[in-house]
Every structure is written in structure tokens, then in C-alpha cells.
Nucleic acid binder design. Structure first.
Length: 275
DNA sequence: CCGTAGACTTGTGGTA
DNA sequence: CCGTCACAAGTCTACG
């Protein structure tokens, strides 16, 4: 699911409401979403801690706790991180099937994780987990310059679509935004990364940042599972130009969009516009 | 270094 | 209509 715009939308939606709240109680509905440590130890460590910050790096979120500790969260394909007020009625029960990990907060709200596939989940860490993630630069950071992007491409034989998905090259793009950025830049997904001209690298730099910013402004792309922290869908799915549009006419030139296999991922591109 | 395949897991949609 | 298969926003590992 969630690529940079979706994860950042969730972070923005949650940061204000949960910062300063204490985790009063934890219910683990499916232990597979607690990746480390074991469930009992997780409950013991995290219960009673206060949330003092929520940060994002690439597609990861980190809940900073006090006394010092961290919850590293990755949503993988189908994870949702949601926040809602619990019913105030005495004896009201949390609906079953709401989520797979429930964190009851001291203001009567529930912060909960739901993941159909259980690929994603929570890691408890003593130290800040971000430095150890070995991720590439944040594409929307002010320090991420066109020159830095050109240095990432130079000499690379890997196909440009694979490199955009490589979180160690640049952090946060996934299958949707990699395809959309390449379409906007007019570059075929199977080009060797190092074969891009200076002008092409510049176009890709701008299109990658533009599509991420537009998707963020739209609250992300909801195709199946992704939801914002308050449960609303994102809106960017209507603005996708090639992803998921095999056989449809290209919005620029009218040629049918093609799909091909890149590794084990489907990639979409316009054979008329992308060279 | 690069590519592919498989693993994790469940739901959905198209096809036979 | 039902069963089966392919496929899905991500990452990690193994292997050639």
C-alpha cells in the first residue's frame, strides 16, 4: 500500500492527537503484527509509556516514547494505523474485528493497527531505529538536490524502475509512484539508470517530487486497503495516469497503456510517450 | 553488481 | 454457481 505520501498523511493526521498521550492498556488480537519482542514482553514494555513524538523515514513510522523507547511501524502492503474515540457508554465494548493491535490511550481514544495480510507491524526498540535503516535520501527533503540525484544514477546498470523501488537509493517510492514518476518524465521503466541523460535525470527528479507532493496534498492513493488515520480514503487514485490502467488510452497521446513484468512487479507505461 | 524467484498472508476479481 | 488461479501498495533472503 502505503508509499511515502500515504505514510506521511497518516503521520500528519496522528501527530497532533497522540502526542502527549499515555498508552494505558494494550490488546494484542493477532500476535503476528507484534514483530519484536514477544507479545507478553511487548505489553510489559510499552504499557504506561507516554507518546512524545511521531516521525517518518521512507515508509517507516516511529512512535517515540517516554521513558525512552521507540515503536517502529511498517505498514507493508495492507496495514492501517487508525485513531478513533471510544464509546463513552459504561460497559461499551470495543467492536471485534476492529484491528489486530489495540493501544488504549488516556484520553479515551484508541490507536489501533489493522493489517489484512499481517505483513506489517510493530517493533519495540530501545534506541532510535532510523539511523540503522540504511535508507537513501528523503526525496522531498530540501537537501535532496538534483546533483545528488544524478550521483545516485551514475554508473548504475540496474533498470531505472528497480532503482526507484530500491529504498537504499531513494526512500519512499513504491510501485505506484515509481510508475507515475517515469511516465511524467517520459522515460521507459527498463532503461538502465546510468543511461539517463542529464536532462532526463532532471526531468525524473522534478516528476518524482511533483507526483509525491500532489499525492500528499490529496491524502494519498486508496486502491484497496489504505486509509488515513481517521478512516477516510485518499483521493489521488483518480489522478493516476498509468498505474493500473493497462489498455486505457494514454492521457497525453492516446496510445494504449502497456503493462509488463519488472522482476515480480507489474509496471505500467505508455509506449508512445516514454522513451 | 544485477536479476529472478520465493516466502510471508488474505482477499478479491476474472475466467473456466 | 463454485472452484481455482492470478494478482495485490512491501521487504527480505537465497541463488545464478
Amino acid at each position: 500500500m502505503p508509499e511515502l505520501p500515504e505514510v506521511e498523511t497518516i503521520r500528519r493526521g496522528l501527530a497532533g492527537p497522540i502526542t502527549g498521550r499515555t498508552i494505558k492498556r494494550i490488546r494484542i488480537v493477532d500476535p503476528r503484527v507484534v514483530k519484536a519482542p514477544g507479545p507478553a514482553e511487548f505489553v510489559r514494555l510499552v504499557t504506561g509509556r507516554r507518546i512524545v513524538g511521531l516521525r517518518r523515514r521512507g515508509k517507516y513510522l516511529c512512535l517515540d516514547l517516554e521513558p525512552a523507547g521507540h515503536l517502529l511501524v511498517h505498514l507493508k502492503m495492507s496495514g492501517r494505523l487508525l485513531h478513533r474515540r471510544l464509546s463513552k457508554k459504561a460497559g461499551a465494548r470495543v467492536p471485534t474485528g476492529l484491528g489486530h493491535l489495540l493501544l488504549f490511550l488516556d484520553d479515551g481514544f484508541l490507536l489501533y493497527y489493522h493489517d489484512t495480510r499481517r505483513f506489517g507491524g510493530f517493533h519495540y526498540r530501545t534506541d532510535d531505529p532510523f539511523p540503522a535503516l540504511a535508507l537513501g535520501p528523503e526525496p522531498l527533503d530540501p537537501d535532496f538536490s538534483p546533483a545528488r540525484w544524478r550521483r545516485i544514477l551514475v554508473g548504475r546498470q540496474a533498470r531505472i524502475k528497480s532503482l526507484l523501488l530500491d529504498q537504499q537509493a531513494v526512500a519512499g517510492l513504491g510501485n505506484i509512484y515509481a510508475a507515475e514518476a517515469l511516465f511524467r518524465a517520459g522515460i521507459r521503466p527498463d532503461r538502465p539508470a546510468g543511461s539517463l541523460s542529464g536532462a532526463e535525470a532532471g526531468r525524473l527528479y522534478r516528476s518524482m517530487r511533483a507526483v509525491l507532493k500532489e499525492a500528499l496534498a490529496a491524502g494519498g492513493t486508496s486502491i484497496q486497503d489504505y486509509r488515513q488515520a481517521d478512516g477516510r480514503s485518499g483521493l489521488f487514485q483518480v489522478s493516476l495516469r498509468v498505474y493500473g490502467r493497462r489498455g486505457e488510452a494514454c492521457p497525453c497521446c492516446g496510445v494504449p497503456i502497456k503493462a509488463c513484468r519488472e522482476g515480480s512487479r507489474t509496471t505500467y507505461f505508455c509506449p508512445g510517450c516514454q522513451h
